[in-house]
Amino acid sequence: MTVESEHRNHTLVVTVENKAGVLARVASLFARRAFNIKSLAVAPTDDEGLSRISIVVDGASAPLEQVVNQLNKLINVVHIQDLQPGHAVERELMLVTVTVEPDHRDDIVEKLDRAGGKVMSVGIDAMMLSLVGAPDRIDAFEDFLRPYGILDLQRTGRVALANLDEPID
């Protein structure tokens, strides 16, 4: 993912009623209006009547205002927060299993430590790692691992919260 395209990405944090079929309504609205979803994460909130859907959309590929307006028309959508690029803390989790000859292990573990990741499991010639970070950091780490040989990889959808007045990140 290039830097420019990352800058066009908006994260919509959509608070919805926690009812059967709501995710399907949201997803089918995106499909019908030809809006592309880049990443999706769904989770409960502290209010058991509500769930939160974090949707990353490319603000250039779809008129964002239309996306938001159409989403707002869904009766089960309670609130939408549009997190502008650069004005939110965004995180993804990556779990990855990578082939590593024993003599390369130290390189990887050192790099992983610096990135704040963890070794989850170690096999004879493979390791499973986890890393939480901003999406571009995760991308970079994935690129670093690729030459070693990625056996399996999963990334979560992106979750985000708006910056406080004084961002730490």
């Binding site: 205002e65 239309q66 307006n69 159409q70 707002n72 028309k73």
Partner: peptide
């Protein structure tokens, strides 16, 4: 009355 029509 429908905000989604404005600018669509």
């Amino acid at each position: 009355i429908d905000p989604a029509e404005l600018g669509k």
